[in-house]
């Protein structure tokens, strides 16, 4: 479904990604773990067109989408829930969701998607008239995911969905991520600092360190890997 080949991204003279390759198969959950500044967010931003890649290819359903503008990439069914959620705090919850369906012309499809999102996150339904900036962190994350789902994506990228959220809600959100993957067959690329959780729900994982992939394996195997254990899983 998505194949990244030798992707390179520089910020000026600083090299953020030094040629990374990864693959996400249809219906899969793949995770990208690593420390702060390893290049996880950069990877997602380069895939979704928010950043220019200096080299390499991003093949989505066989087509190279590297350096297409972001609004064209969404059109292909690839949706990105960015780091820090980036909800439109000045719009209402419902308006945020409607923006997610910006490219969808068919009202019926929009209604269906809205119903699905409200079914998945009932909290959003209760708060649909509320200005999004007044939501709690967890609710904002639900909104960011819901908004991404409104475009009816085939492929979803999530950047740190657990960041700044109450532990209880983190669990709910991760359950929902698995549910979205199972029920809708949406393939997921998940970036997480909480490596434990990420490896628990994913099938395959990549470990990123200073712009390079240093390890990749089945998530279950990565969890047993001593190197991963000491560096990312709290050493036990």
């Amino acid at each position: 479904m998505l194949e990244v080949k030798n992707l390179t991204v520089n910020y000026g003279a600083i090299c953020a990604l030094r040629g990374i390759s990864l693959e996400v198969k249809q219906g899969d959950i793949v995770t990208l773990i690593g420390a702060n500044g390893a290049g996880k967010t950069t990877t997602l931003r380069a895939i979704s067109g928010l950043l220019r890649a200096q080299g390499g290819e991003v093949l989505y359903e066989g087509r190279n989408i590297a350096n297409l503008p972001a609004h064209k990439i969404v059109e292909l069914g690839l949706s990105h829930v960015p780091e820090g959620r980036m909800i439109f705090a000045n719009l209402t919850v419902l308006e945020n969701l409607m923006m997610g369906a910006y490219l969808q012309k068919d009202r019926r499809v929009i209604e269906q998607e809205l119903e699905y999102v409200f079914g998945t996150f009932p909290r959003l339904k209760e708060r649909q008239k509320q200005v999004a900036g007044t939501l709690s962190g967890g609710e904002q994350q639900m909104l960011a995911i819901g908004r991404a789902l409104m475009s009816k994506p085939k492929f979803l990228m999530l950047d740190e969905p657990s960041l700044g959220i109450a532990p209880l809600l983190v669990k709910t959100i991760f359950e929902k991520i698995v549910e979205i993957n199972r029920q809708q067959g949406i393939s997921i690329l998940l970036v997480e600092q909480n490596a434990n959780l990420a490896l628990e729900i994913s099938r395959y994982g990549y470990v990123l360190e200073t712009g390079r992939i240093i390890l990749q394996d089945q998530s279950s195997a990565l969890r047993q890997n001593p190197q991963v254990k000491s560096a990312y899983l709290g050493g036990v």
């Binding site: 979704s48 067109g49 928010l50 503008p69 972001a70 609004h71 969404v74 059109e75 949706s79 990105h80 960015p82 980036m86 909800i87 439109f88 705090a89 000045n90 719009l91 923006m99 997610g100 910006y102 490219l103 908004r147 991404a148 475009s151």
Partner: peptide, 10 residues
Amino acid sequence: FNPQAASLMG
């Protein structure tokens, strides 16, 4: 409010 997020909406 946020041009980048808007472009992610298409």
